[in-house]
Design a protein around this nucleic acid. Structure first.
Lengths: 250, 250
DNA sequence: TAGTGGTCTAGACCACTCG
DNA sequence: GAGTGGTCTAGACCACTAC
């Protein structure tokens, strides 16, 4: 099928991640030197460094010239896959994701949509309105726009499709990049009705454009979360950054 | 002073970033091959790859096996330094940052603060309340807690210090990692008074812990932005992620 | 001063894209 | 099949930390 062997450095990163998380070195403890890791895992120092760079980006370890790497507090990290898919995210939380398509139709892209999807205004796009639930409770209203080829795939999906993202991937659509903007919005009439909140109630809004490996936009979405249901967390460092979405602490 | 020569790959990244942004390759255009860049800049391919990895993380270019790298839409990227400092961020926007310390005192850390700063509960910490303005308009209320050594530096600062972060850095405090959580909060009485909004008005909340290169927490802060003034944006890809804060469009 | 991570090189092979 | 980026190696030197 679609299998391929993982790179050595990814395997190594996974192994080290597990060691760290099972407390082999202890929080605040020190990792072995790169040289030592290279020897003990039978790879070159370069490969060890690639693996450690991943852990660094995830906020699992620090790194500083002159000293061994230090184990940080356990971060909550999500893979790109979990971020792209509400369904995957919910499952990784151990919650039951649900959702229903409330509206779906083709229409001409307005100026904003065209800009976001890098299309000419007026190009045909598929517009979809979905309600997302977590354990049966309504949590988020999702308004998504798909360009022509992807939209056709979405439109052809059964009405009760649980995860659009997963099905798209099964159809060969590859998601590689996403731009998220998080801010605040007020519930409109639809939001209020669907999320069971007051009109003009504050919602956490995430707008997102996802692209394939070519840089071609695959979807543009505006998601509105009921207050207190989610928070977005980002770990960032001098070198790199990692995004996650969490269940709000309330 | 504190100067040091930048690494070759960072210089190269800066040069390429500039080329891309000045449209040398055009949006959607293709970069020269790694081999070609190595030759033309007189470095090895490894160094070129380090430089390109930076641009990849920033969302400036894509990368895919088998094809030249493609120029993406211009992303708004912020350095870690701009994210750590309200003042630097404001300046990079061309806006005039302002701020005033409204309250500042030593006290015993409560359970939450102790946890966030990885201290024992009851440890002495410095608590600071600040109002931040952009072009004279109140924009954000900042409640920050500093552990002992850093707190002493902050407490010793002149009351009209513009940028606490910059002054801390000048005093030798190095910021290396930050964890951000973005969600929604409702204005309490203080917020409402300071931000000139209604009590219980929705605000965009950012909670942040910043650490030094050792992994030792340096500050913990809860910032509340008036609705419509800022948004947080994140670019993330299969490999990496980059965070930014933007002036809200609304 | 010894040990460590950061940078850089030179070369190799592989997996993938595209004409 | 030619060209490209992804992975991996082996070795070198440097900057910094900590003793």
């Amino acid at each position: 099928m679609n299998r391929q062997k993982a790179a050595r450095y990814r395997e190594l990163a996974a192994a080290l991640r597990e060691d760290v998380q099972s407390g082999v070195y202890g929080e605040g403890g020190r990792l072995p030197s790169e040289e030592a890791l290279a020897a003990s895992h039978g790879v070159s120092r370069g490969t060890v460094r690639q693996a450690l760079a991943l852990l660094r980006a995830e906020g699992v370890v620090t790194s500083r010239r002159g000293t061994r790497r230090v184990v940080l507090e356990q971060p909550r990290v999500q893979s790109f896959a979990e971020l792209s898919s509400f369904t995957r995210w919910a499952r990784s939380l151990g919650e039951e994701p649900g959702g229903s398509v409330l509206d779906l139709h083709w229409r001409a892209a307005d100026a904003i949509e065209a800009d976001r999807l890098r299309l000419a205004p007026g190009t045909r796009v598929l517009w979809v309105l979905r309600l997302r639930t977590l354990g049966g409770e309504p949590v988020m209203v999702e308004r998504t726009v798909y360009p022509e080829p992807v939209g056709a795939l979405v439109a052809a999906m059964p009405a009760d499709t649980v995860s659009v993202t997963e099905l798209l991937e099964a159809r060969g659509v590859v998601l590689a990049d996403a731009d998220h903007t998080v801010d605040l919005a007020l519930a409109d009439a639809d939001d209020a009705r669907l999320l069971d909140c007051a009109p003009a109630a504050p919602l956490l809004r995430e707008r997102r454009r996802t692209s394939d490996p070519t840089g071609l936009p695959v979807e543009w979405s505006e998601d509105r979360y009921r207050a207190g249901t989610v928070a977005f967390t980002v770990h960032n460092s001098l070198a790199t950054t990692a995004l996650a979405r969490t269940r709000s602490e309330g």
